[in-house]
Amino acid sequence: MIRVLFVCLGNICRSPMAEAKMRDLVAQENLSDKIEVDSAATSTNHIGEPPHHGTQEKLREYGISTTGMEARQLKKGDFEQFEYIVGMDDSNIGNINKMLGNPDSPKIFRFLDLTDHKKDVPDPYYTGDFQETYDLVEEGCQALLQKIKQEHML
Results as ranks from 00 to 15, higher is better:
91 S>T: 14
147 K>P: 03
147 K>Q: 09
133 T>N: 07
108 I>R: 02
99 M>E: 07
48 G>D: 03
61 E>P: 02
136 L>G: 12
53 H>V: 10
11 N>T: 01
79 F>A: 06
34 K>H: 08
102 N>S: 15
104 D>C: 05
47 I>E: 03
70 E>P: 09
33 D>F: 08
123 D>P: 02
102 N>K: 11
131 Q>D: 12
132 E>K: 14
91 S>L: 13
152 H>D: 08
56 Q>D: 05
95 N>K: 13
134 Y>M: 08
3 R>T: 08
2 I>C: 07
84 Y>I: 12
28 Q>F: 02
110 R>S: 04
38 D>S: 13
46 H>E: 14
34 K>S: 13
140 G>D: 05
121 V>Y: 04
76 K>E: 11
7 V>G: 06
98 K>C: 09
71 A>P: 02
30 N>Y: 10
76 K>A: 14
42 T>A: 01
142 Q>S: 09
7 V>I: 14
83 E>K: 15
16 P>W: 00
146 Q>P: 03
33 D>K: 15
10 G>M: 03
58 K>W: 05
43 S>Y: 15
126 Y>N: 07
126 Y>G: 07
5 L>M: 13
63 G>E: 01
13 C>K: 09
24 D>V: 01
112 L>T: 05
31 L>P: 05
112 L>A: 04
74 L>M: 08
38 D>K: 05
132 E>I: 11
49 E>K: 15
